[in-house]
Amino acid sequence: MITCFLVDDEQSAIDILRAFIDKTPFLTLVGSSSNPLEALGILQNQPVDLLFLDIHMPQLSGLDLMRLMPGRTRVILTTAYSEFAVEGFELNVLDYLLKPIAFERFLKAAQKALNTAIEPAARWQPEEKPDTYIFVKTESKGKMTKVDFDEIMFVEGMKNYVSINTSTERIITLLNIKDLEDRLPGKQFMRVHKSYIVSLDKIRALDGNQILLKGMKAYVPLGETYRTAFFEALQEKVMGSGRK
């Protein structure tokens, strides 16, 4: 629901806009004033979503009031004078309604307010960040260890257990290798054998059906079943054909 406030020095104009707001299901009127200075005081303490604002008023013009308004309030100008349209849009008004205002034209302006109320919320929706770690239960009862994905070199399956190997430690946990494979980010890790998952970033060299990882002397086997998918994943990284 969009909260609205009316400012116009003519009560008849306020009455017309109040009737229009009552007919518009997504607008709700929270107040009105025929005195722009009074309205400024109210709005500075209780900001609203949308202000319908006349331009020609005693003591303070609508354009001057706009310059003093809280920044989050959107403004639709309502006036009998078209010559202020350019100046109004330079102040980033949402719309400019010329009196006498037809309900259809009012509704079009109100729809703009609805659209601008919805779009920023969607645009600023926090982006869901991918997981970068997991906690796993270890052999010690009640102990859980945090494992950062970036630190994993490879995973080895051992029946009902898996061994998660980093450059500094080996973590044994009661897990199925398939369950862990599903949990690891697919762009970073790949199953290369029925018993092994490797971090693609940690690969140092390939030699036939063997994979050498950075900082390791032993090779991880590349299973025949996984060979085609593995090389397809690496294809865009491969340079040179090996031909002379």
Results as ranks from 00 to 15, higher is better:
R105N: 06
I118E: 11
L65H: 03
P120F: 04
R170P: 04
A80H: 07
I164G: 00
D8V: 04
L234I: 10
E232P: 05
F26R: 04
S241I: 02
N165C: 14
L212V: 01
G142H: 05
K217G: 15
K108E: 11
F5I: 07
S34R: 10
G223I: 04
V7R: 15
V48T: 09
A121C: 08
Y96E: 02
P70V: 02
D95K: 00
Q125K: 13
E104H: 00
R204F: 06
T145C: 10
R243E: 11
Y81P: 02
F26H: 08
A205W: 09
I42C: 06
M57I: 05
V75I: 14
S195Q: 07
W124R: 15
T138R: 09
I211F: 01
W124V: 13
L184S: 00
Q11K: 12
Q111I: 11
D148E: 10
K187I: 01
H56C: 09
D131T: 09
G62D: 08
K143I: 12
F189T: 00
R72I: 03
A80S: 13
T73L: 01
V48P: 06
P36F: 07
D207T: 09
E139A: 15
Y219G: 03
G142P: 03
E127F: 02
E151F: 04
L60H: 05
L180G: 00
L114Q: 12
K143E: 15
R67G: 13
I14W: 00
E169D: 13
G142V: 00
D95W: 06
T79C: 13
I101T: 03
T24R: 15
T228Q: 14
D207M: 14
P70S: 08
V162A: 01
K137P: 03
P100C: 08
L6I: 11
D150F: 03
N92V: 06
V86H: 09
E10D: 08
I21F: 03
N209E: 01
L43V: 06
F154I: 06
L91E: 11
R105F: 05
M66G: 07
I211Q: 02
F230P: 00
S61M: 10
T116P: 10
S61W: 04
S82Q: 15
F26P: 02
A205M: 12
A85I: 04
L6V: 03
L65I: 09
R18A: 13
M1W: 07
R243C: 06
T166E: 02
K237V: 07
L200T: 09
